[in-house]
Nucleic acid binder design. Sequence first.
DNA 1: CATGGATGTTAGTCATCATTAACGTAGTCG
DNA 2: CGACTACGTTAATGATGACTAACATCCATG
Lengths: 202, 202
Amino acid sequence: MRDVTTAATTPTRNRRNRRAEILEAAARLFAARGFHGVSIEDIGGAVGVSGPALYRHFSGKDALLAEMLLDISSRLRESAVAVATSATDPRQALDALLNVQITFAIEQPALISVHDRELGNVPEPQRRQIRRLQRLYVEEWVTVLAELHPACPAARLRAATHAVFGLLNSTPHSAGELPERDMRPLLHTMAKAAIDAAVSVR
Amino acid sequence: MRDVTTAATTPTRNRRNRRAEILEAAARLFAARGFHGVSIEDIGGAVGVSGPALYRHFSGKDALLAEMLLDISSRLRESAVAVATSATDPRQALDALLNVQITFAIEQPALISVHDRELGNVPEPQRRQIRRLQRLYVEEWVTVLAELHPACPAARLRAATHAVFGLLNSTPHSAGELPERDMRPLLHTMAKAAIDAAVSVR
DNA sequence: CATGGATGTTAGTCATCATTAACGTAGTCG
DNA sequence: CGACTACGTTAATGATGACTAACATCCATG
């Protein structure tokens, strides 16, 4: 994700994708030290500009965070919808959902961390929308699970879904324990088993 | 946890356990808004005193956080050691470890949240010790799992352990989805299944 | 009763920080 | 060329916040 569309325009440094570059750096910093633990200066410094330059790209620190969370929530939700519409049977859909979440967790650990820690710092107008997207994402999971196990009460499916997110999103914490090559199938296996256990009886 | 040992000394309010009261309130606030998102004033306010009164009990905000994390890490570790020494067979030990973690996650959600988010804000001398306790706690789990599945590589067991913590610690997020009566066995079942799946070959 | 320690209170002090102002520079396009 | 736009820069400015000082109270104990 260093130089994607650029790489041709400038000899000294990157240009254009400053916005994206800032969002990425900010995500890393927020994940490491928390929203309030990071200053505008820090973020600027991380992309080679200094401080108030950020205001050329974002209306403020809050707005930056809001855009970050809005972006990840939308992408997760979109992916889930895509899965739901394209999958032929629910079992396959569940596998695909697992892969979506695992991919995000492994490839964007910082974003995932920020996503489930910093919602409280997003100002009210946009917080509502992010919450909505998150809710819709969960509901995609619950819908698939309900098709697989119609007898299981929805509340239980929702709780199980949250637990599985916790399991999958643990990746940022256990960073480096295992190479991605092994981590990915391990998470998939564990999550699947956890779900099966959750919906079977009792 | 409102009035434990007190209740006899004062008609107006609590006395003595101010320290504990402060730690508890701070945990709740840190969990909700993050270490830097909470002011000394906020913490004081939450226990009915105002601001600098805290310095009568703690040498500073950092020290307060450090003590909080040190306390929970020790308690977790101690419980795990107790389990390991008292259990007769590893299967039973694993069940007991699961119950320990589930109990903490359900009864002290704030502490658990802070525990795996705010370590980075603890000053260096004590951070090392907390990390050490956390590592020892994980190793208790790994040891038990290794007894159950000697063929499974330790790295995989460690990764699986972290994943299970993620699953169990998701409780604070899905707060209220399900009553504790149902949540507790659900988490136990899911975690057990996830572990079994993790250690069975591939 | 006087003294001292534990616990609070309010009014600074000094940093840090988000945000704004005022002011360049480069390249684009008319 | 000229001027507009996109992006940066370095100084304010104004809040907020951690921590300290100076000053009560309460209560136990000699």
